[in-house]
Nucleic acid binder design. Sequence first.
DNA 1: CACTATTGTGAGCAATAGCTCAGCTCTTTG
DNA 2: CAAAGAGCTGAGCTATTGCTCACAATAGTG
Lengths: 206, 206
Amino acid sequence: MPSADRRLQPRRKPRQVRAELTRERILTAAAHVFAEHGYAAGTTNRIAERARISIGSLYQYFPNKDAVLAELLVRHIDRGTWTQADQLDLSAGTLEATVRALVRDAIDNHNDDPQLLRIMIEEAPVSQELLDTMVRHERNRVGQVRDLLARHPDVHVQDLDTAAELIVFTVETNTHKLMAYPRTGRVETFENELVDMVTRYLRGGR
Amino acid sequence: MPSADRRLQPRRKPRQVRAELTRERILTAAAHVFAEHGYAAGTTNRIAERARISIGSLYQYFPNKDAVLAELLVRHIDRGTWTQADQLDLSAGTLEATVRALVRDAIDNHNDDPQLLRIMIEEAPVSQELLDTMVRHERNRVGQVRDLLARHPDVHVQDLDTAAELIVFTVETNTHKLMAYPRTGRVETFENELVDMVTRYLRGGR
DNA sequence: CACTATTGTGAGCAATAGCTCAGCTCTTTG
DNA sequence: CAAAGAGCTGAGCTATTGCTCACAATAGTG
């Protein structure tokens, strides 16, 4: 088994359209295979088979198996455009709506392929390099949320930085669970309670 | 690679003390090896080597590699005795203390070996059988918490069942993150905010 | 002490998966 | 159109790992 901290860059950059297409075929196939079989059982040969390309082609664009999943993860992260903070209503009395927007955003990010996301989050071997990328990204989000909270008049917490961290992680994780493991109850109920929890927490007071 | 849903029971029950001791040696060694190398790289041969027994002995008590980690996980679950609900103060105005007790409980359960727990939670291949055990256990906890909330006079939420689920998962997950990935800030700060979030949520009102 | 049952041993088998490379096909270019 | 480079192929090499089994050692028993 290969060590996880090897280079994740492809060995050759595609120069023809044909090549770019092959790369996409590989990634699409990989997404399906990983989602269906899991990471360990999602072999490179299976991916190549599904993409209808030879195994050799796969290794022309990805130095190893980890790199394929890493690319998928990075793409997912980059896709999470995140609702612009500017668009949010920050006037007093709208805290709940703001929080709900955040939650909805998280849900949207999980809507594409919950199974694949589950694999990526729970089974992927995370290299140091990839971990750094993810940490950096999370820091960004936390920073955005912190600024958001700082500007909102209704927010009253002890430690703003910690609160931002707590909220981002809690919303993200609960949403993930909600989407990857469909519950018996109604989804809305869960969403409502989650929104309530965050809102009441931020509103503080007593 | 073996399928995860094979029998998890040992093939032979130990009848002599010597055998029971060997079994323990294996589990202790496995805990160290998994914590240090992760699940995939924690090979059975490495475990046997560390336990100073032969690989054959390992397979006399565990039908396959998964079973070893499964046993460790079950033991961890069973160890989480959970503060008796009776001992908690349920009089009005003590909600925060009650919540803090729950959080402290979660922290205690992660104190033994955060690294091993991280492996078990994030890397272990979970068989259907094991999953059932875990689900059953979580249902118990959720039930306990729901009863607790139902009895406390200060609790005001829309849906009690969902609230219990949400809280158990949120506290568990945040604690896990806190312990497995040591933060830069002070731990107490995070604990305080987490307690605040849950408390304010439950207290409701507006 | 002899006999049986239990426990322990470790070389090596079987299976699998990641990955290579020599040579082919297709595209571009002058 | 021909040469050169880019892209593609897939049989099979290499390495690893979970696991078996024939045998040895130890403990229990009358």
